[in-house]
Amino acid sequence: MARMKFYCDAERCIECNACVTACKNENEVPWGVNRRRVVTIKDGEPGERSLSVACMHCSDAPCIAVCPVDCIYDTIDGVVLHDKDICIGCGYCFYACPFGAPQFPQEGAFGSRGKMDKCTFCAGGPEEDHSVEERRKYGSNRLAEGKLPLCAEMCSTKALLAGDANVIADIYRERVINRGASVLNRGVSYQNAAFRASRGMEGKSSVKE
């Protein structure tokens, strides 16, 4: 079977937050829960890059390992899902997750967090596919309809890729090769290659060669 993966291409992400909005809308997550977020590194400095991050559906997921009630599991597609009927809201998955994917509806006194919520790769939960319960607890189940997660599907620059790990890897490898070729072709550094300087063009340019 396929192993489902997300990949965010930092050279393409334009921090439009459409993936965040799409996720919120598609899964109807409560306020305060952000299954996906876009983080910008070096905001406003040279080398600024943005990455969209959610649950990365790890192969050896730390959250699965540390959960004291064993409510998190991975499916045959490599999607990490959890059972909200079993979850006790202890927050251990949040401590263990490198990506900060597990979210809790409350951050109250005396450890009242509510049930954990996280990206399901638009694959619902342990309930029956497309049931009302599944919709209420986990949001949409696009995978069962043969569709990929909405965040990746509507990414305008195709920075966020979702799907079979092999396919994603092939697409990304092709992009890297093309970028490398453009660097060699135009004789600029990789850093500048992304910005498309007005090389060899007449007229006004804000970029001094």
Binding site: V20, T40, E107
Partner: peptide
């Protein structure tokens, strides 16, 4: 980094 999403 920076993000639009609030939270710890």
């Amino acid at each position: 980094g920076r993000t639009q999403v609030q939270g710890v």
